[in-house]
Write a protein that binds this DNA or RNA. Sequence first.
DNA 1: ATGCTTGATACCCAAAAGGTATTGAAGAGG
DNA 2: CCTCTTCAATACCTTTTGGGTATCAAGCAT
Lengths: 304, 304
Amino acid sequence: MDLRQLRYFCAVVREGHFGRAAASLGIAQPPLTRQIQTLERQLGVSLLHRTQKKFEVTQAGLLLYERARRLLDGADQAEDDVRRLGSGETGRLTVGFAPSNAFTILPPIVARFRATYPDVELELRQFTTSILVTSLESGSLDVALLRPPLSSRSLQIVTLIREPFLALVPAMHRLAARPATQLRQFAGEPFVMYSRAGSPLLHARVMDMCQRAQFSPRIVQYADQIHTVAGFVAAGIGVALAPSTVTRFNMPGLRLLEIAEKPAPLAMAMAWRTGAATGLVRNFTRIAREATGPWQSGQLAEAT
Amino acid sequence: MDLRQLRYFCAVVREGHFGRAAASLGIAQPPLTRQIQTLERQLGVSLLHRTQKKFEVTQAGLLLYERARRLLDGADQAEDDVRRLGSGETGRLTVGFAPSNAFTILPPIVARFRATYPDVELELRQFTTSILVTSLESGSLDVALLRPPLSSRSLQIVTLIREPFLALVPAMHRLAARPATQLRQFAGEPFVMYSRAGSPLLHARVMDMCQRAQFSPRIVQYADQIHTVAGFVAAGIGVALAPSTVTRFNMPGLRLLEIAEKPAPLAMAMAWRTGAATGLVRNFTRIAREATGPWQSGQLAEAT
DNA sequence: ATGCTTGATACCCAAAAGGTATTGAAGAGG
DNA sequence: CCTCTTCAATACCTTTTGGGTATCAAGCAT
């Protein structure tokens, strides 16, 4: 038995007429007649009682009609559901993110994704970068937002935004009025630094930048995250360096200066397991690119 | 989408191996691979994630597997049910019968049918012969047990048993000791007669037999049905003629004699609408023939 | 390194589905 | 009563597709 035969039989019963049924199916009448005959022969049951010229549906035919309709509906539904799941319109997507994303690119991405794919269950989990990587590899995460570089070769990675570093000074600082500064101006200044444990990547990058500017920062305070660092600077404790995310904090007492040396920007990327680019993942990455497009164009203050 | 493709896909998922799946399906492996590919192409969804040599089932594939299994089960079930209904193993069969059958051939037929086809709903309805005929023609009855002749040409009719007529006399009657009698011995005897209204056919047949024996019965009592007539005879009210069914009444005071003239026996038949010989009807008629076979062989007293 | 296993590919054949033309029989209408 | 129309069935042909055999390419294990 075959879904095509059932479709044909249902059409015949529904229309009560071979010609019209064939037309509604988009085929000619003779093949339809033959398919019904074949179906009857295979079942060993007469479904239509041909009473010269006309026909009437037998008890068995009526039963088959009911069952066939349910089967066909079920098949269509299944096909649709599978298609939607495959195309990423439904399903469950588990997204991991590093803490530094929680206030920056994550909200607009999630907002846009929710709006575009309301039927997808979006599960968000915050982890450190190293756990994000192992979770991606083990399959417990579908996508992750994290900072490159990544050592794993089994992961696909795409950079979403590149944030230039800015110099942070208190409002009453001697450089506060300037639009830009050279990094070496910070030599000997009291420095607010990212802790190695809380933000190893930022710690490393800032130390590296200072080293390239040929000074060693006089660290007076450690802080874990960017907005903590910015808060300490705004409080006048010292100067600091931070990615341009800080422009979104809007803290009184904080001044942001461009860095004349133009150090390499800090990238934010998303990663997923190579080959695990399901529809959901493809859709999420597309949405992420769309939602973070404005950053690339410099509209840093817009949150979508 | 096609049940074959679903069957194939389920086999692959179940076996986790194209070669074994193909073997279990009784086909070669390359066609199976192609069918799965076609299915994926038609759905636009990757169902199996081929990770070099091996494969794993994707989320969408898992969903399809669940749905497909239900669909296939449903299809098999539907096929089986339709087949059973068509072959007359299940369903509802409405059987009509004339009152005179209720104590004769109906019980053994019903008993045998119920035993052979326990899943058939057997609905029994008692009517007069004329209503049986119209009910058959209108389709509200599937089969009927009645006495020929039948005028309708749209009905198929098969005789089940032929009952010879017997002469009924009281035990103290002058003919009671004889094994047989000639009909004309009844000329002038007090006669118990079937009423024209209650048993028109029997009335007509008995009147006809008397006429052929060249006498007119001296009717002293009318009765509707055979066992009433027999009762009156046993009570010594008069003589009568009855089909051999009377041998089953076992009434004290009643004697049965063969009729020397061997009048044409009284037939009992079953009828159904020409062309409406569904599996149920075919089965019932077969059972009826089997159950009434003993009558033909003369075992009148056996009730099966 | 080298068989061996496994899924994919290439190519061929057979079966089955669809199309056109036509038939046969029954109802409708003059 | 006869024709004309209608509808399913049949005959015959073409196209599609499903299945088979041989073979390949890539891992995995020995």
